Simulated scan of single mutants.
Amino acid sequence: MEHTRILLLLYIDVCLIIGFYMYLRRIKKLIGFQLGTNISVVMGGMISLLFGVLLILQFPFHFTLITILSTSAGMIAGASFGRLFDYQTFVTGLTNGMLVGLMSPMIGTVIEMPNLFIWFMHVFFVLSLITIIISIKRS
């Protein structure tokens, strides 16, 4: 049951990320580069954190592969979101996704209450998305 829930959460996360990317792609001309930098940092970091922790809980004995996957996912996401705005934002998202992706499997291996931490991460992720959307509307 636990493994099915983790895979479902990964699927929901990917759907939210793709939907948010499509939303940003449509309105990228309305967003300044400072807000774009913050968006790429948040998305690259959150995606690599979510992927690293959820995958290490799913496959606890594949630390090296999970580190590579979470780092790659964070780099791709940070770079993709940063590419919407400018090159400097691209580099910022790329490096932040890489750094958090390298650290997130380590966090996943030492948590003592995984269910509580998973829910905390997802609440934090959704609140980050809401904050970004509010910031876009106000800019």
Score class of each variant (00 low, 15 high):
1 M>I: 11
2 E>K: 13
2 E>H: 10
3 H>G: 01
3 H>P: 00
5 R>P: 00
5 R>F: 06
6 I>R: 03
6 I>E: 04
8 L>Q: 12
9 L>M: 05
10 L>I: 11
10 L>V: 09
11 Y>Q: 11
12 I>H: 11
13 D>M: 04
15 C>T: 07
15 C>A: 12
16 L>G: 01
17 I>K: 04
18 I>A: 00
19 G>N: 13
20 F>C: 00
20 F>S: 01
23 Y>H: 01
24 L>Q: 02
24 L>W: 03
26 R>S: 14
26 R>P: 07
28 K>Q: 02
28 K>I: 01
29 K>L: 12
33 F>P: 07
33 F>N: 09
34 Q>H: 10
36 G>K: 01
39 I>W: 01
41 V>H: 06
41 V>A: 13
43 M>I: 09
44 G>A: 14
44 G>V: 09
46 M>N: 11
46 M>R: 04
46 M>W: 05
47 I>C: 12
47 I>N: 08
49 L>W: 08
49 L>Q: 05
51 F>V: 08
51 F>A: 06
54 L>C: 10
55 L>Y: 05
55 L>A: 09
55 L>R: 03
56 I>W: 05
58 Q>C: 04
58 Q>M: 11
60 P>A: 10
61 F>Q: 15
61 F>D: 15
62 H>V: 10
64 T>G: 07
64 T>I: 12
66 I>Q: 15
70 S>T: 10
72 S>T: 15
76 I>D: 05
81 F>N: 03
81 F>R: 09
82 G>R: 05
83 R>M: 14
83 R>S: 13
83 R>Y: 15
85 F>M: 05
85 F>E: 02
85 F>H: 02
86 D>G: 05
86 D>S: 07
88 Q>A: 15
88 Q>I: 12
91 V>H: 06
92 T>G: 13
93 G>N: 06
93 G>I: 01
95 T>K: 10
97 G>E: 14
97 G>S: 14
98 M>N: 06
99 L>Y: 03
99 L>M: 04
99 L>C: 02
100 V>C: 01
100 V>K: 00
100 V>P: 00
101 G>S: 07
103 M>H: 03
103 M>Q: 08
104 S>E: 01
104 S>D: 03
105 P>S: 09
109 T>N: 11
109 T>S: 13
109 T>D: 10
109 T>M: 12
112 E>Y: 12
113 M>G: 04
114 P>T: 11
116 L>P: 00
117 F>I: 12
117 F>N: 03
119 W>R: 13
120 F>I: 15
121 M>K: 05
121 M>T: 05
122 H>I: 15
123 V>Q: 01
123 V>C: 06
124 F>N: 03
126 V>A: 00
127 L>S: 15
129 L>I: 11
131 T>E: 10
132 I>A: 00
133 I>F: 13
133 I>Y: 13
133 I>W: 14
134 I>K: 07
134 I>W: 02
134 I>Y: 08
134 I>D: 10
137 K>I: 12
139 S>T: 07
